[in-house]
């Protein structure tokens, strides 16, 4: 799927670019895109190091175990294949909490950690498991309670009520997450 999406985007981009006589722009975009990815990656190293460092302390202090005991009843419905006491549940719990609190730069490294734990439970290492797909869908649905970035952009655009969209955002996020989860549950039997 990703192979096809990537190939189509790139091929269509080049094709349309040539039709529009934008060959130079396309070349520049390809090189700029690659360097942008590297710049962003280096920017991520600090945040990833910090959050996985704190996570490691919490893990060794057995704080994560306590947290996953609390979160397990809810998360077990979404991730039924994670056995009791497996570290994947702790990482998933941390990832969900970071998402809800809107700590984007903490949520991603914690989510990756959860993916790595889920990969240990995965029987076919090159194919995504049902639980891994669920984690991806939940993270793609943006579960945050307060959209801080959007509020900041609105306020700098001169809004008289920058936080006024919190209600509509919550309704929308909730609907999107529910649909995403339902579609994932429905398709997990169908697509192998």
């Amino acid at each position: 799927m990703i192979n096809a999406v990537w190939a189509v985007m790139l091929a269509v981009g080049i094709f349309v670019g040539l039709l529009n006589d934008q060959a130079d722009a396309v070349t520049k975009a390809a090189i700029d895109g690659a360097s942008q990815a590297v710049v962003i990656s280096f920017g991520l190293i600090g945040a990833y190091g910090l959050w996985l460092g704190i996570m490691e302390i919490a893990q060794r202090a057995r704080l994560i175990d306590a947290l996953s005991c609390i979160m397990r009843p809810v998360l077990h419905i979404l991730f039924p294949h994670v056995p009791k006491g497996h570290p994947a549940m702790g990482a998933i719990s941390m990832n969900v909490i970071a998402n809800v609190l809107g700590l984007g730069n903490a949520a991603t490294p914690l989510g990756i950690k959860a993916m790595q734990h889920l990969q240990q439970l995965n029987h076919h290492k090159e194919t995504i498991s049902d639980d891994m797909a669920m984690l991806v869908v939940i993270n793609a649905a943006s579960l945050q309670l307060i959209p801080t970035t959007v509020i900041a952009v609105r306020s700098s655009a001169g809004s008289s009520d920058p936080a006024g969209i919190i209600g509509t955002t919550l309704i929308t996020t909730f609907c999107a997450a529910v649909i995403g989860i339902c579609v994932a549950k429905m398709l997990e039997k169908a697509i192998y």
Binding site: M1, I2, V5, T108, G111, I112, M115, Q116, L118, Q119, K125, E126, T127, I128, M132, A133, L135, V136, V137, N139, A140, A141, S142, T172, T173, C175, A176, A177, I179, G180, I181, V183, A184, L187, E188, A190, I191, Y192
Partner: peptide
């Protein structure tokens, strides 16, 4: 990209359609 890349999963099965459906719903 990031989640699948970090564990080297190549077949994403239903992850993309489900995530895109969530976006469209949003």
């Amino acid at each position: 990209t990031v989640y699948l890349g970090a564990v080297g999963v190549k077949k994403s099965r239903h992850a993309l359609p489900a995530a895109v459906m969530a976006d469209i719903t949003g």
